[in-house]
Amino acid sequence: MFLINCPYCGERDQQEFKAGGEAHIERPKQPTELSDDEWAEYLFMRKNIKGVQFERWNHAHGCRKWFNMVRDTSNDEIKAIYKMGEKPPSQ
């Protein structure tokens, strides 16, 4: 449990938010040309990092907007929050 600074609403309790998993997984540009291996990679394989990870979050019980977060999964410390479409901060 921690506080999240929603880029639209400000600081709120984590239980208002829904975690959306790993960020910056790009949807395949040519889905019809993808091999089964590539589909598996896109759909299922995750970095699942212990340490600094880029994630998507949704303010589900608030403004319902999506945004990105950089978080250390070993101690739940939030390093940065940025809006969808913005470039991820370099570490």
Partner: peptide
């Protein structure tokens, strides 16, 4: 379970 990835062995109160 919590719905976010974490290695903290803690978890949320709610």
């Amino acid at each position: 379970t919590d719905d976010y990835v974490s290695y903290t062995q803690k978890g949320s109160h709610q």
